[in-house]
């Protein structure tokens, strides 16, 4: 099943709505609560990244019984050095964004820690696609 959520750039008031919406779906699908937590934490970080750094984007969530795949796609400045961006504490966030409690440079790390697979593709001046996969245990 596929679900799509639009994410508006610069609107911190609504940052988290996509993750909350998808969380509700995962609960209805009886995904294990602890796995939902990992998925939602990862997705929320990605969502906030789009709000804070891009010119807007969307989250495309795909669920089957084996895994959850989330693609966070944005149009924006892109990430020049993905390896550097992955390092804990690295942040390009402006002072304004940091003041709001975002941009501590832990975002991508946090996604990595909570997901099974993390792929980042980015083109400077074009945009970024963060792909998150969380596997679901097979009964």
């Amino acid at each position: 099943m596929r679900f799509e959520y639009q994410i508006e750039a610069g609107n911190f008031t609504n940052a988290g709505d996509a993750s909350s919406g998808f969380k509700k779906i995962l609960k209805q699908l009886n995904v294990d609560p602890q796995i939902i937590k990992r998925i939602v934490v990862s997705m929320y970080e990605g969502e906030v990244n789009i709000v804070a750094h891009s010119n807007g984007g969307k989250a495309i969530c795909d669920v089957d019984t084996s895994r959850v795949l989330i693609q966070l796609v944005d149009i924006g400045p892109g990430i020049p050095d993905i390896e550097k961006a992955m390092q804990a504490g690295f942040s390009t966030a402006s002072a304004k964004v940091r003041e709001m409690g975002f941009g501590a440079g832990m975002g991508l790390q946090n996604i990595k820690n909570n997901s099974d697979i993390l792929n980042i593709q980015s083109e400077v001046g074009v945009g970024t696609c963060v792909e998150i996969i969380v596997n679901l245990p097979q009964s």
């Binding site: 609960k27 209805q28 699908l29 009886n30």
Partner: peptide
Amino acid sequence: KLDENMEEAM
């Protein structure tokens, strides 16, 4: 949850 079984829930 809509169902215990995930496929059925979907």
